[in-house]
Design a binder for these strands. Structure first.
Length: 896
RNA sequence: GCCCGGAUGGUGAAAUUGGUAAACACUGCGGACUUAAAAUCCGCCGCCGUAAGGCUUACGGGUUCAAGUCCCGUUCCGGGCACCA
């Protein structure tokens, strides 16, 4: 064998072997347990970045590990190929998004191949191909039939200069990214999927997802946000001529609250700018009309809504409190959303932080109605069944001067008339009952989750299969005319959807009446594409069905791996989609992903400049000079060409921020095995990783040492092994036994860590194994046999991480033909036994030394040895030992 | 602002889930080999102290024989917030 480690040759040969033997091409096989290992497919942005290498190496380690454990392993790959970056590239370079996307796919596929992933490429798919997105359209039509999809209005970011809808990402500080114009909210029609119909099931089934991280389930549960509250109405007789002179909303202003216990503290109501009461009042109030107009500016993002200055204006209208009968003034608030609940809220300044700030700002009354519980008396004794506790609310600590978080806590009702002294739960029951008696309210379950708006006013996406006819309205495209194919030669210019200018796409005859009609030009949210690709991979390739029977063999996905940034939206939409497919009779399973590994983000610094008029211009690190302090912390950055001072942020690697690090240079210089090993060694998978290539050399050095040990083993050690093997049952010399024990202990730890999916310590276990192997006794047949066994263990543990070098050494050193076919190693109990153990000796919790005892020494013996230890005597300073704690196999702590 | 995470030497990190803090590496320093360089190998490397020893897991409290790990409060950093994917 070659004495130098030449990764390029080794990797080419191994990949050739896997290709020639179709090693990763799989089909359904009921005789073996299956393992469907899926990594989130990449957006084809141009080049792989380190986040991809991390994601796909994790998937590959798990795939190869399970393959060696005897599973029928499916690991597919494809492309999340529709989306905004292709349009941005088109604007910049005048290249059609289709060409840009397909070119990127070709390049990135070759990069993935060079990393040696065990992928079944025969199942590759790209979501921008008609044979894939046809089924988006097909199932969308089924959802329309079932009433799961519907058309209603949506609020979007509108750029008044470019006359186009902006994605949230394209809105920076409330302005359009290209024009710098202040963004407006605009209502337009669009299609929605009723994910809220599945809210209960999506929440309830989280309990079935034992293989998901708790934090992801918690995030999803909070997102779905089930809350039980009370929906009730304030009565009024505000009439409007446009309403035929009748009272607006039947004379009821509906609101929803989760804190009905504070209802007696209501001192105002706030409605959204688009609320009928606001519009009514604005007719005779130019100031209010102007305020309502102003509320239309700004973005639709929740984060912006939550952090903006809360402003309001009184309408001069009053409504009647249903329980006190008092008049309550109605305000218009810029923080109240028409699209959420009834577009109105009750204001309780004393017990809600936002209402408190609003009331202070506008001089609205603040009335305390909740107070901390204070015990005022007990009758009887603890044994007395008639025992009574008496309490009241303690109002001493309340002040209207400044908000305190404790004001929002649950307590006892005060200043609430008949409800005084009730707890929150009792009060909600009593108040809901009283409201119900008047028929102006009831308990209601409210969800935070909103329906999923899938219409996008963009070109590079899946066309929504609808035809608009003047006579027949919105008509679904008949199934036999699917797919509605997206023309692939358009070049967007940033000023709206280029499909509007495509006469050949636009004009079509109405399928119902045959008259000339117009195609829908909106395309689908790209989350639609990624909501079911896992099921398509598992379907017979090219099947003329959305999914076929094979999907029921492979699904559900046994292990899903992807970035934590997808914890809510993508994963929730996929779960929803699976349930819809089940209800349409397409699949048998109800959850798509059994186990989820949420990979931590790979972060890198991004450098940007904010030009006048808004937006952020990002620069590549090669374009700038970076200033650092003595500790290596970045203190500033300037643009090389003109010295412009730049800002910087630590953030996830992305195409749009020019901060992605391409792994290509790493692979070319060191090889795929080094890149993979280093990536796994750098940090545990779930942890955020700040990118740095310091340490790549170390990984490369390690693999070189593995190779040269292999060479020494093959040429000097292995030849010592006799014809008759002697290892089984042999009594080994102490040094040899200790070495063997060390390897088997490391194997035990590595297997444990693989179970925990903590691959960085698996990598360090392999390094420790090599350190031990290099120092192991080498002379004699017995030593050679032990080394053969232990090096074989190292190669197999290493193989999921660095498959190429492991493949080459395994075959060349005669361990077998194919390491993938070898059985995964398990530690031998016989190799692990130990006569003596070392226990740490603590005196009063501080480490003072250690004691060696027989592995099976009873507690008394250990105590006796510890108590007579010189350090015990020294640090007890003559005091008697009050207590001795023995933790078997670990330590002795003497308390005195 | 709200929801979810994270913070350990100069650096990436480890700690078998409450029981030796810093394993394994990177960097740096010193040495061997070499005409020389590279590669390789050996040694040292948390802070204070000559030592004995003391201190140390973002910060401040608490529980415990024992806390990086559990509880309470705070700071900073990251992810998500529904049209980036």
């Amino acid at each position: 064998m070659q004495d130098k480690y030449l990764p390029a040759d080794i990797e080419r040969a191994a990949q050739q072997y896997w290709d020639d033997s179709a090693a990763f091409r799989v089909s359904a096989d009921a005789s073996r347990p299956k393992y469907y290992c899926l990594s989130m497919f990449p957006y084809p942005s141009g080049k792989l970045h380190m986040g991809h290498v991390r994601n796909y190496t994790i998937g590959d380690v798990l795939s190869r590990f399970h393959k060696m454990k005897g599973f029928n392993v499916l690991q597919p790959m494809g492309w999340d190929a529709f989306g905004l970056p292709a349009e941005n590239a088109a604007i910049k370079n005048q290249v059609p998004p289709a060409k840009w996307t397909y070119d990127n796919i070709a390049y990135m596929k070759q990069q993935l191949k060079s990393l040696g992933f065990a992928i079944d490429w025969s199942r590759e798919l790209a979501t921008c191909t008609p044979e894939y997105y046809k089924w988006n359209q097909w199932i969308f039509l089924r959802m329309l039939e079932k009433g799961i999809a519907e058309r209603k209005t949506q609020v979007v970011n509108w750029d008044p200069v470019d006359q186009t809808v902006l994605a949230n990402e394209q809105v920076i500080d409330g302005r359009g990214w290209r024009t710098g114009a202040v963004v407006e909210k605009r209502e337009i029609p669009g299609y929605y999927l009723k994910i809220t119909d599945y809210a209960d099931e999506l929440l309830g089934d989280l309990d079935q997802l034992g293989g998901w991280p708790e934090r992801v389930k918690l995030m999803q549960a909070n997102w779905i946000g089930k809350s039980t509250g009370v929906r009730f109405a304030f009565k009024h007789d505000i009439a409007d001529a446009d309403n035929g002179g009748g009272p607006i909303g039947d004379g009821k202003l509906w609101v929803f609250t989760t804190r009905a216990d504070t209802i007696m503290g209501v001192t105002f109501c706030a409605v959204a700018a688009e609320h009928p009461l606001a519009l009514h009042a604005a007719k005779s109030n130019p100031g209010l009309a102007a305020f309502i107009e102003k509320c239309k500016h700004g973005s639709v993002m929740e984060a912006d809504m939550a952090t903006m200055e809360k402003e309001g204006l009184p309408t001069g209208l009053y409504v009647t409190h249903p329980l006190t009968g008092k008049q309550v003034e109605v305000w218009v608030g810029n923080y109240v959303l028409m699209s959420y609940g009834d577009g109105a809220v009750m204001g309780v300044p004393a017990h809600d932080e936002r209402d408190f700030a609003f009331a202070k700002k506008y001089g609205i009354e603040i009335k305390q109605v909740i107070a901390p519980i204070q015990l005022v008396g007990i009758t009887g004794t603890l044994q007395d069944k008639e025992q009574q506790l008496y309490w009241k609310g303690n109002t001493d600590d309340f002040s209207v001067d400044a908000w305190r978080p404790s004001y929002a806590e649950y307590g006892v009702l005060v200043n609430s008339g008949a409800y005084d002294g009730l707890s929150a739960a009792q009060a909600v029951d009593a108040i809901a009952a009283d409201l119900a008696a008047q028929e102006v309210g009831e308990k209601k379950v409210q969800w935070r989750l909103r329906d999923w708006g899938i219409s996008r006013q963009r070109y590079w996406g899946c066309p929504i299969p609808i035809i608009h006819c003047d006579s027949c309205g919105s008509v679904p495209v008949p199934d036999d005319q699917l797919p509605v194919v997206l023309p692939e030669d358009c070049v967007p210019d940033g000023s709206g959807n280029p499909l509007h200018k495509r006469e050949d796409f636009l004009h079509v005859d109405c399928p119902k009446c045959g008259k000339p009609a117009r195609r829908e030009t909106d395309t689908m949210d790209t989350f639609v594409d990624s909501s079911w690709y896992y099921a398509r991979y598992a379907t017979t390739f090219g099947a003329d069905k959305m999914v076929d029977d094979e999907t029921n063999y492979w699904m559900t996905v046994d292990q899903y791996i992807g970035g934590i940034e997808h914890a809510i939206l993508h994963l929730l939409y996929s779960r929803f989609w699976t349930k819809v497919m089940r209800d349409l009779g397409l699949v048998e399973y109800r959850e798509p992903f059994a186990h989820l590994l949420t990979q931590g983000m790979v972060l890198n610094n991004a450098f940007f400049h904010k030009p006048e008029g808004g937006g952020k211009n990002y620069f590549w690190e090669s374009e700038i000079d970076i200033q650092k302090d003595a500790k290596g912390q970045i203190t500033g950055a300037t643009l090389k060409k003109d010295g412009t001072v730049l800002e910087h942020e630590l953030t996830t690697m992305s195409k749009s921020k020019n901060n992605g690090v391409d792994p290509q240079a790493l692979i070319e210089q060191y090889g795929a095995d080094t890149a993979r090993f280093f990536m796994m060694f750098a940090a545990p998978p779930e942890q955020t990783l700040e990118w740095s290539d310091a340490g790549v050399e170390g990984a490369y050095r390690f693999l070189r040492r593995v190779w040269s040990f292999g060479h020494v083993f093959g040429s000097e050690i292995r030849p010592q092994i006799g014809v008759q093997r002697q290892l089984a049952g042999a009594k080994l010399p102490e040094a040899l036994a200790a070495f063997r024990r060390e390897i088997h202990l490391l194997l035990k730890q590595a297997n444990y860590d693989l179970g925990k999916q903590q691959f960085n310590t698996v990598a360090s276990a392999t390094m420790k194994m090599l350190n031990a192997l290099e120092k192991a006794p080498r002379e004699g047949a017995l030593a050679a046999e032990v080394i053969e066994e232990c090096f074989g263990i190292l190669l197999r543990v290493l193989s999921p991480l660095t498959p190429h070098i492991s493949h080459a050494l395994w075959a060349q050193l005669g361990y077998g033909d194919d390491i993938l076919a070898a059985a995964w190693p398990e530690p031998l109990e016989a190799a692990l036994v130990q006569d003596e153990v070392e226990l740490m000796l603590q005196v009063n919790g501080k480490l003072r030394g250690s004691v060696r005892v027989a592995a099976d020494a009873p507690k008394d013996t250990i105590e006796a040895v510890a108590l007579t230890h010189e350090m015990t005597i020294k640090f007890l300073e003559g005091r008697p030992a009050k207590k001795v704690i023995v933790v078997p196999g670990r330590l002795v702590n003497i308390v005195g």
